[in-house]
């Protein structure tokens, strides 16, 4: 039996709509579930106090600071290296063996489970370089982890800038570097910023790689060489060791809201930027 084209059309519209709706529903359900269980426990003192009795009481202020330090440092390290690599790959070299090797390496790096990065970070940064369990060791580990994302998204963004813009810029007497900074990066920046924001999100939500590198100290980190516990790891510990499910959900709520805020700010920045230049 054959189904008429008009009917396949109807069936597919319904099927695609259902699948899309499932995606949105799942997302909203998870968000709602976490916020429903967590938000009632998120109070001002929860956000601003240090944890007491292993996190059963008190707040999560040191975790917020630790998360910001680790994620911020990781992106500060990986961002410039990643964007520079992307510029090199797209503007300063011809396609060949070297570019293929760099890309293959980046892709492999992207596929490695984060616990492996954690193990590497533990052996190399924590032990060999003697950093100990610290913000720095965690940030460096995360930097390596998010580097491929930043390279690839920046590369795509730069490639999306028409070649003819470079021709015009050079034709007007710009050097390659002036062209890269004033024309190419300027046009590519929304894409590059998106990649970096995604990376910040990944850093904030990373757990496994930090367990072995940043540690799980409850006290406030005062320098990059102090150990710290990030929000995601705090959630994991509270839940896993059954310390306080209520505080665990509250921590998760804060985590989700922070990531949401970062995305919103990034979109706002991007739209503002695009509106100004185009």
């Amino acid at each position: 039996m054959r189904i008429s084209p008009a009917n396949t059309q109807r069936i597919m519209v319904v099927a695609l709509w259902t699948l899309a709706a499932m995606t949105v529903f799942t997302l909203l359900f998870i968000l709602g579930y976490v916020l429903y269980h967590g938000l009632p426990h998120v109070t001002w003192s929860f956000l601003t106090e240090s944890p007491r009795r292993m996190g059963k009481e008190g707040g999560i202020f040191p975790m917020i600071v630790g998360t910001a330090m680790v994620a911020g440092l990781a992106v500060l390290i990986a961002g410039p290296i990643g964007v520079a690599t992307a510029i090199y790959l797209t503007e300063y070299t011809r396609e060949g063996k070297i570019t293929a090797i760099i890309r293959f390496g980046a892709d492999c790096l992207a596929g490695i489970p984060s616990i492996i990065f954690g193990l590497f970070g533990f052996v190399f940064f924590v032990i060999t370089l003697g950093m100990g369990l610290s913000v720095m060791a965690g940030a460096l580990t995360l930097a390596i982890m998010v580097l491929p994302t930043i390279i690839r998204t920046s590369e795509e963004a730069i490639r999306a800038v028409p070649r003819s813009f470079s021709d015009v810029s050079m034709g007007l007497g710009a050097t390659r570097w002036q062209t890269v900074t004033r024309v190419v990066l300027r046009s590519a920046s929304p894409g590059i910023v998106t990649g970096i924001v995604l990376s910040i999100g990944r850093c904030i939500s990373e757990t496994a790689a930090l367990m072995l590198t940043a540690g799980s100290a409850l006290r406030m980190p005062h320098s990059a060489l102090d150990s710290c516990r990030t929000l995601a790891l705090h959630f994991y510990t509270l839940m896993r060791e059954g310390i306080s499910p209520a505080h665990a959900w509250a921590t998760a709520s804060v985590l989700i809201v922070v990531i949401l805020l970062i995305n919103l700010v990034a979109y706002w920045l991007m739209r503002r930027f695009v509106a100004r230049t185009v």
């Binding site: 028409p162 003819s164 813009f165 021709d167 015009v168 034709g171 007007l172 050097t175 230049t277």
Partner: peptide, 20 residues
């Protein structure tokens, strides 16, 4: 070369305004 390109100015077949 940048000086040369300022001295010999070029207009292309397709108009290519920069996105500004």
């Amino acid at each position: 070369v940048p000086t040369l390109r300022r001295r010999v100015g070029m207009v292309y077949a397709v108009p290519i305004p920069l996105p500004w």
